[in-house]
Amino acid sequence: MATSCFSFSTNCLLPTANLTIGRAVTLYFQLLTFNFLLIMSEAKIRVLLAKPGLDGHDRGVKVIARALRDSGMEVIYTGLRQTPEQIATAALQEDVQIVGLSILSGAHMTIFPRVLELMREKGMDDVVLFGGGIIPEDDIPKLKLHGVGEIFLPGTSTDEIIKYIRENVKPRD
């Protein structure tokens, strides 16, 4: 978020040097623009996508990363084989609002609860955890009981995931 604010504010300050109208007016518009851009940049949701465990099937996570980026979100993809510790740490460092795990290996009942536990330990109570992959339907309510926000199964459209993220991320101050 810091980066995008910086780039926007630089851009909106540049024209002021060339303006001949009153300084106060300029500043007024400048502030208006700045505030507007700040709101826009705040709307840029930060998402961490991760592939935990040993599974290397990354077609889905890569398609989703691109779709989220195309929809205007900031996406950080961890790459393959991240431990729950690495994922929770990355989520904290990257200051994301939502974390998505892609698991096709059957290890979901071990990995989701572990990542959640670590996120809570690190104080990320307002960060949502969701996921997708090859996950039997019976396991979904169990994962939700642990605190997983949503599980998306094969065949989900990227629009559905984008909508879910927009509706479920907690606003930041």
Binding site: G53, L54, T83, S105, A107, I111
Partner: peptide, 10 residues
């Protein structure tokens, strides 16, 4: 340790 949760799964 890295095998935790994945033994015999897929």
């Amino acid at each position: 340790p890295i095998s935790e949760g994945e033994v015999g799964k897929c």
